[in-house]
Design a protein around this nucleic acid. Structure first.
Lengths: 339, 339
DNA sequence: AACGCTAATCTAAACGTTTCGATCATGTCA
DNA sequence: TGACATGATCGAAACGTTTAGATTAGCGTT
């Protein structure tokens, strides 16, 4: 900018005024300045601007895994929304690791991001402290965080799983395996509650050996399924509370020599783009990814636009059970259907 | 930092020296400073540091679509690599749009990213100018760019498709449909060449009506497949040069009342994590996503480490044909196999 | 005692912006 | 003609760091 000012024989203040339109500058000088900008190929240095202005027009986004199709889609939507609003997005993947997450959030805050969207991981204690210290707006995505009272957009996980399990029960299933992630994050906790409530509402007993915990990865789903299917009294249906793990479930079913849905029914949380093309077409709980991403972005953009003092807003969206052909009727029902 | 210095009754220079270890500071002052840092909860401002140092420890990454599983995986690997190296990643999705891409790259450069990894889109002219102007190292990912002579990591696309098409020919297929993206980017061009060469090498005629262009999206694959299958002399196999489009192909096959592989064989570029669990299990050309991401990251990290003057390095990796059950033998071969 | 050497610390400029308040020319009005 | 408002431009401080070079103190040599 200094060079531009010199070339146009004006002060840097005038150049700044012209670029930002913060003051009127005469047509004559305007032209000289614009010419100089073109000649020199001047580009405003956003870092210097950020330092002075105290804002970077950048937000931080942390998710556990970008390869989980749910997060892939949500990240994509969020990215687009902020792109439209002129913000850049710094993406971090925490790999479901608490320390990684904390490091990354600190890194983002050091860089003066204007806001944060966090699909948190693990215990929320440190997150709480970090968020309290940093006075940037934070939006929680997908996962609430005890003690962190801020904007959030989540799914009604309990209801969604309740509906899915009830659907399986209505098909005649009585022993329904349930594979979940570690329950220290709210969706896993709520989904589990939905499972238990559905079983209970149907007057069925909860079989604790049919509930298996994994760490969100395909291999965890594989192992959990293997264990369940190797038992003497195996379930007739399996519900996976997490999307990558269901791939493991399908592989285990294949490897053990069974097939879905003939021998065992399968349903899972989170939809796949290809779920209605390949066989079996999985019955899933679809999250409104577009809406989730947009709402999260809107909440944050609203804060960034200056609406700092409004009380925390918590948006709860509804999932949708996508019934396909991976679950088959059992017993009396099966006969009435096949008749 | 000023507050820390005051609290510890030292100069800011000493504080800086201690934090960065750039000069020895006596144990006594060290202790006072560390105490003050803790008391105040001081965090170094990375923006101010960047302004002074001329480096942000941030890189820019642009890809066409993050929802394309190939890019999802590569982005994930790159993100991890830079995370380990203490860099942040700014992610941009260009949505296969040239203007969006140019805007985003400019945005990234304004923010003084230290380097750029670009899976480019469209015509490379503007990209070339931008890259020339900015004197940050650039690594091209997946797609080369005419006139931009810089580090790159790409696949041997021609060979990969040649092998895949030859595989289909060896199965007895003679009319092989080919669905591709717009050929102004190098992978699409090279893949097309591979297709033509394979057909030619087998002494078969090129049927131009079997070559269809789309814009990388599922819907394009759908439309292209619909057109081909509605013709009087439809192909016995279809190869999709792009991953999202093959979903459209499968949907079209289903909607038109055919099935794969009984009525038509299908293969495509890029592997899916779930390709060997669901039916049909797609035969694909798998890219070494892990290696691609790591190599791209390494090339850039090497430049960032100061190796600026080395000549441009172009890494060409090999694809791998993953043969599954979505392609069936035809004619004489089919008989010998089924016999 | 004067000198030089080393180690520790500090002063101040610089990075590239924004912006407040000052300056200055010009035109208007009484 | 003088007072004054208006509009355009500028000078300089500030944002929070890093760092070159100056300063100071302590200590061993001669």
């Amino acid at each position: 900018m200094l060079h531009v000012a010199e070339a146009a024989r004006v002060s840097v203040a005038t150049v700044s005024a012209l670029i930002n339109g913060t003051a009127t500058v005469s047509p004559e000088l305007s032209q000289r300045i614009e010419q100089a900008i073109r000649d020199i190929g001047y580009k405003r240095n956003a870092i210097a601007r950020s330092l002075k202005m105290g804002t970077t027009r950048t937000i931080g986004l942390t998710v556990p895994h970008i390869t989980n199709p749910f997060f892939t889609d949500v990240v994509s939507v969020i990215q687009q929304a902020f792109d439209r609003a002129g913000y850049a997005v710094m993406l971090c993947c925490t790999d479901e690791d608490l320390n990684t997450q904390d490091d990354q959030i600190r890194l983002l805050l050091d860089r003066m991001v204007d806001g944060l969207i966090v699909a948190r991981v693990g215990d929320g204690a440190i997150l709480k402290r970090i968020v309290d210290d940093a006075n940037v707006p934070v939006v929680l995505l997908d996962r609430l965080c005890e003690g962190v009272d801020t904007d959030a957009v989540v799914l009604d996980n309990q209801r969604a799983v309740f509906d899915a399990i009830t659907y399986l029960i209505n098909l005649g299933h009585r022993r329904i395996g349930y594979i979940t992630g570690t329950s220290d994050i709210s969706p896993m906790h709520d989904r589990m509650t939905g499972y238990r409530e559905a079983i209970h509402a149907a007057g069925l007993p909860i079989a604790e050996e049919l509930i298996r915990f994994g760490n969100f990865h395909e291999i965890d789903g594989y192992n959990a399924t293997m264990q369940m299917l190797s038992s003497h009294d195996r379930p007739s249906a399996i519900f996976s509370a997490n999307n990558p793990m269901v791939i493991g479930t399908m592989k285990a079913i294949r490897d053990i020599g069974l097939s879905c849905p003939e021998d065992i029914s399968v349903a899972c949380f989170d939809d796949f783009p290809w779920s209605d093309v390949f066989q079996p077409q999985l019955t899933t709980v679809a999250q409104p990814v577009q809406a989730i991403g947009e709402q999260a972005a809107n909440l944050l953009l609203d804060r960034l636009a200056g609406n700092r003092d409004a009380p925390p807003r918590k948006l709860v969206l509804k999932g949708r059970l996508m019934i396909r052909n991976s679950c088959r009727p059992l017993g009396a029902m099966a006969q009435s259907v096949s008749a």
